[in-house]
């Protein structure tokens, strides 16, 4: 294949990104939530040695790229990776690879399973065409290690606590550990400020007598985060939705983006321009 026959756009959507070096490409993989099995790592190592220059690149979005793939080897790499269960990644104006922490599959603080949710979102939306790049990240709790605030659509696990008076000894531990100052314990009486609570669940997991219990578990959703040249943090627009509500809202958000974004506008800018309340009305 000669260089003028190369369809860079099709290569790009297929997860091959042109390098500055002549006829060299980086092969981006479709990694979900940073989950890669040992056998896949072996296949990656083999491909990097056979077709690349012997190294892989870890992207900022938990992804993996094999750089220095010659144009002639593009198809071979794709086939080898597919055999190992690793699919092509994406770039451009599409729904990008999903970031997720390990949540309650590993982390003591995790309140939900972001890995499972990431796989479901990936299956449904991966690489779908949108007006501009659209990044999704899922954090298992409000500690936000997966940085949902930096993404176009952020998801955060949360629990709403409930206080059981009859179980409480008034020890004051919950007041001490609450980072949001949402709990005051005075003379054995607990006052809970729901507005201040960030749904982290620390009071529940720490209470010695189980006087704090889960009232509701769900997902808090954020919209409009991005970094780039004009960074802004995503803002919270709804709390504690369940999984089916989440998918409904995500559908409507993508629809809203397609209908309202001007060319090359991230959804954060669309929401800034049209208004958060208008966005909320459209998707909730």
């Amino acid at each position: 294949m000669s260089q003028d026959q190369v369809d860079y756009e099709s290569l790009k959507s297929g997860g091959f990104m042109r390098q500055r070096q002549h006829n060299q490409f980086a092969f981006r993989l479709r990694i979900v939530g940073g989950y890669v099995e040992a056998d896949q790592l072996r296949a990656l190592a083999k491909a990097a040695e056979e077709f690349g220059d012997g190294h892989i690149h870890l992207t900022t979005r938990q992804g993996i790229e094999i750089p220095f793939i010659h144009l002639d080897d593009v198809e071979s790499v794709r086939e080898d990776m597919a055999e190992a269960g690793l699919r092509k990644g994406t770039c451009g104006p599409r729904i990008r690879g999903i970031i997720a922490c390990q949540g309650n599959t590993v982390c003591p603080r995790g309140l939900v399973n972001p890995q499972d949710l990431a796989r479901k979102i990936d299956e449904k939306y991966f690489a779908a065409g949108v007006p501009h790049k659209f990044k999704i990240s899922i954090a298992g709790c409000s500690a936000s290690c997966a940085k949902p605030q930096e993404n176009d659509f952020g998801i955060m696990g949360g629990v709403e606590p409930k206080w059981l008076k009859e179980e409480c000894t008034g020890c004051g531990l919950c007041q001490e550990i609450c980072r949001m100052d949402a709990i005051i314990v005075e003379d054995g009486v607990v006052t809970f400020d729901r507005e201040k609570c960030d749904l982290c669940g620390d009071c529940i997991s720490s209470c010695p007598t189980d006087a704090w219990v889960i009232n509701k578990t769900g997902y808090t959703l954020l919209i409009g985060g991005k970094v780039g040249r004009f960074p802004q943090l995503a803002v919270k627009f709804v709390e504690l939705v369940d999984e089916s509500q989440l998918f409904e809202i995500l559908d409507k958000t993508i629809q809203f983006f397609k209908e309202n974004a001007t060319k090359s506008e991230r959804i954060g800018d669309t929401v800034n321009r049209i208004g958060l309340e208008t966005f909320r009305k459209a998707v909730l």
């Binding site: 003591p108 020890c171 004051g172 531990l173 001490e176 550990i177 620390d202 997991s205 720490s206 209470c207 010695p208």
Partner: peptide, 25 residues
């Protein structure tokens, strides 16, 4: 110490099946 240590220790004590019977400041 107050703050993070109280948070981490109380959570881990509970997860391991032990019981905090008193907390004094």
């Amino acid at each position: 110490e107050a703050g993070e240590p109280v948070r981490n220790v109380s959570r881990s004590v509970k997860e391991d099946g032990n019981r905090i019977i008193k907390l004094e400041k």
